[in-house]
């Protein structure tokens, strides 16, 4: 891509229903993958001692797959509220970096639209949207639409998993059976390919990958994502500026 920063600044960012619909539809394949994990969460939540209503409330408000599954590990009759909050925050730290990367779309919108859209940001809808943004789409409605798609699938799956958990448990206890555990890896690989602009990126990607791998081996949770992303960003800043 050869657009200069001046060009980007002068272009108008819009936020339309059409863009939202486009984001929603493009995200459906990812939504189906999220659906499978939502079923698993619903089943495990009931097994961990939550009522179906509580599981649903959690998916509607906290709305964070990895964080919610990790919260189940801590779920007990006496809820460790502080530990739950800190765990969820640490697991979701990567979203700080992801939100910042949506700058070109979101700083030009009215704050209401920006901060409403951000509530629905997930790894999946973010990855799709950031690629769309880099491809030159000017409709930031895409970001909200794709987020709402994931929200819809995650919540309907939670409800189904939590209420019909004995049946669902037998069918979907292990998403690996259907190859669905690989679905997200495949999507992220394809999106990464679409980000390819030339060999000069190789050192940046190598640094990001090595840091992520090392952190993955050393630290629990999702620290590898934020630290790998930071390392790559810093390497890129040193390379380019």
């Amino acid at each position: 891509m050869k657009t200069s920063t001046e060009d980007k600044d002068s272009t108008q960012i819009v936020f339309t229903r059409k863009g939202m619909l486009q984001g929603f539809i493009k995200c459906i394949p990812l939504g189906l993958g999220v659906f499978a994990y939502g079923l698993v969460f619903g089943v495990l939540a009931v097994q961990a001692g939550m009522s179906p209503l509580q599981a649903q409330i959690m998916s509607l408000t906290v709305f964070a797959g990895a964080s919610q599954l990790m919260a189940l590990e801590l779920w007990a009759t006496q809820l460790p509220v502080l530990a739950l909050t800190v765990t969820v925050f640490a697991v979701n730290m990567r979203h700080l970096l992801m939100g910042a990367a949506m700058r070109d779309w979101l700083v030009r919108l009215p704050p209401g639209k920006t901060y409403f859209s951000l509530f629905f940001m997930t790894d999946e809808s973010w990855a799709l949207s950031v690629k769309e943004m880099a491809s030159g789409n000017k409709d930031a409605g895409f970001f909200l639409g794709s987020g709402l798609c994931i929200y819809f699938f995650w919540n309907s799956a939670t409800g189904l998993g939590a209420t019909m958990f004995t049946l669902v448990d037998r069918l979907f206890a292990d998403p690996a059976v259907l190859g669905l555990d690989f679905a997200f890896t495949a999507v992220f690989i394809a999106l990464l390919i679409f980000f390819w602009k030339g060999k000069s990126q190789v050192p940046v990607w190598l640094i990001a990958g090595m840091v992520a791998w090392i952190v993955f081996l050393l630290l629990p949770g999702k620290w590898y994502i934020i630290l790998g992303g930071l390392a790559g960003g810093i390497a890129g800043a040193i390379k380019d500026a």
Binding site: F188, Q201, A208, G209, A212, F216, G229, G232, G233
Partner: peptide
């Protein structure tokens, strides 16, 4: 700006490699 330009692909790499 250069930092932010490189964050998206770096995060994707960081998700993919350990998986």
């Amino acid at each position: 700006q250069a930092f932010l330009n490189h964050v998206p692909a770096s995060i994707l790499v960081a998700i993919i490699v350990p998986s």
